[in-house]
Design a binder for these strands. Structure first.
Lengths: 348, 348
DNA sequence: TTGTAGGCGTTATCAG
DNA sequence: CTGATAACGCCTACAA
């Protein structure tokens, strides 16, 4: 079956291809009756414009690349939803790239992004190094980094939509100090190194300002199982820190379960908080506190920013760095051990 | 900055563009020294072939569309990983589409798929109706449906990689009957209707064969919170079914928590099983049984099948329907109430 | 082994 | 308002 082209439509409607092109693109210089005729021909033949050819003619693909780490997939679904919805609104197609250690190095991803001639790029977190970003910048391709804050102020066609993890951690530690807690542990997360670093900086800063040194950075293997096993052993004869901070839900749950089963009492002996929220934190007993990040909005805002950059919206000259607000999600309040049932309504 | 083209390279290397094209495409009819020269020119200029132009010239985009429901995003991450990895191996780009009730109707997605002239499509589950599939088939675009089994045998350029949920449910119920259990509830999952239907068919078939009628299909709102609230109330003065089957982890956990807190004893009073596995099932107390579906493999197999279809591999003439094996994940074995710590190693 | 020229399907510029 | 025609960047017979 031969793919039907603009020529076929032109012949069918007895006009030139230029006219067909005009009605496709809503050019308003077409007389109403000929537009009708063309429309009918289009319907009749089932013609769909070839986006590839359009892309070539316009040097514009109306496609945006999203690149994220394969591991973080499940965790970023809400951000992705925000990105996709806004992309849809502005009629952009999405090219999806994942990076992982073995099979798809960042290098290859960049290569294919450039070849694809996408109009813009959304880069997740910053699981990439500066050089890689440079390559993209060389090719003048607008991009926005979403997740963590860039260390350096973005220049050129680069935007940044982020959560200020450093401030978050800094505030959290200060509040803890106010409550008389200074025995704090931060659990390493190898999947989110740059966010980790920012948390750490915030914590260390707070400690320093109190004339203390932070030494509670611990790491172990990254799966729930090994974390849990490690901690189960560890808590057997060692009390947990008064406050344990983790990045992801499963890490927090590992702490909760291990400490619980070793006989330590939540709130009384220790507290655990996960930076990222998830519905599962409400399902453990006792439930676990966290921060609510408006992830969907983050995605939506990031994509919106990119679309603005793509049309050279003047307003983005100044606002290429957007900080996203967060709020604490308290599920367990005091030492009574009483648990709220569930307070966070998540898309299930 | 002018994008550099094949012409620029040709001039730089002092050959014709045809020759450049040949070295790009590894045509082996190029003399070694000229190939060298061309390569150097390419490096020097930082030339990257324009995939759009290639696509136009070849009527082939080396791009595959993946379409899935926005809601199912977080649940399908492992399948997606399998899809992505294999796509990468065969050098296909991925166009990503999500469907949701409001913003992106299936209709629009199909439209953009056709316009994009992708080489093939991966369709998740079957949250789409037959008509929609017909449209895609009309345009002769090869596709494979992954997730549930198609009701009708695929014809034309359609493949199907699936888990036989009907059989799974049928077997599960029969085993339960063998163990003397016939009071079974299946919890509705609105996000996975077709899988639900298949589970239901399997259960009903088993009941029928035992001369009984299955009446345990219950549904309530879809979030964890509302499920939990509903069940908490429900179990206050009503015993859970002897066996409660849910599709997703959060539904199972809602049952577990609500029943637990209402004082019902796991294994002794009731059992709950989630069809889909997730690491979170190991984190609840007592942990929850499930089935392990090799999700990554499912994705990988599906993508591999599609790539074969795209090159008209003769072997796919027969094997366009691939059934994926599953295996039970037992985390709680008997009535002692003792829980295995964790038995499933998930990517954390 | 290399170069020439036509074609892939659209858009945009200029005449008419 | 409509119709030629030259791009857009690359591939591939066909010639040389």
């Amino acid at each position: 079956m031969k793919r039907i082209t603009i020529y076929d439509v032109a012949k069918e409607a007895d006009v030139s291809l230029a006219t067909v092109s005009r009605v496709i693109n809503d050019s308003n210089v077409v007389r109403e009756d000929t537009r009708q005729r063309v429309q009918e021909a289009i319907e009749k033949l089932g013609y769909k414009p070839n986006a590839i050819a359009q892309g070539l003619a316009l040097s514009k693909t109306t496609t945006i690349s999203i690149v994220m780490s394969e591991n973080l997939f499940a965790y970023n679904s809400r951000i992705l939803n925000g990105l996709m919805d806004v992309a849809k609104i502005y009629n952009y197609n999405i090219m999806f790239h994942t990076t992982s250690k073995g099979i798809s190095r960042m290098q290859d991803v960049i290569e294919s992004i450039i070849k694809s001639r996408v109009d813009g790029v959304i880069l997740f977190n910053d699981n990439f190094n500066d050089e890689e970003m440079e390559v993209l910048k060389e090719y003048q391709i607008p991009m926005v980094i979403v997740g963590a804050r860039l260390d350096r102020k973005p220049e050129g066609k680069v935007g940044n939509v982020y959560v200020n993890f450093e401030k978050l951690a800094y505030d959290l530690v200060n509040e803890s100090f106010d409550r008389g807690i200074d025995d704090i542990t931060l659990v390493e997360d190898k999947l989110n190194l740059s966010m980790m670093n920012q948390l750490r900086r915030g914590i260390e800063k707070a400690y320093e300002e109190h004339g203390k040194e932070f030494k509670g950075y611990i790491g172990y293997d990254d799966s729930y199982k090994s974390s849990y096993n490690f901690l189960t052993d560890y808590y057997k004869d060692k009390k947990p820190s008064r406050l344990v901070i983790t990045f992801r839900d499963s890490q927090a749950i590992a702490v909760r379960n291990a400490a619980n089963e070793a006989g330590w009492k939540s709130m009384e002996d220790y507290e655990v908080i996960s930076i990222l929220d998830s519905k599962y934190l409400a399902m453990v007993r006792p439930p676990i506190n966290s921060y609510i990040l408006p992830e969907y909005d983050m995605g939506a805002i990031a994509m919106r920013l990119l679309t603005k950059m793509l049309v050279n919206d003047p307003s983005v000259q100044e606002d290429r760095e957007i900080e996203i607000e967060y709020s604490p999600m308290i599920r367990e309040k005091d030492k009574t051990g009483e648990t709220e049932k569930v307070t966070f309504e998540a898309v299930s």
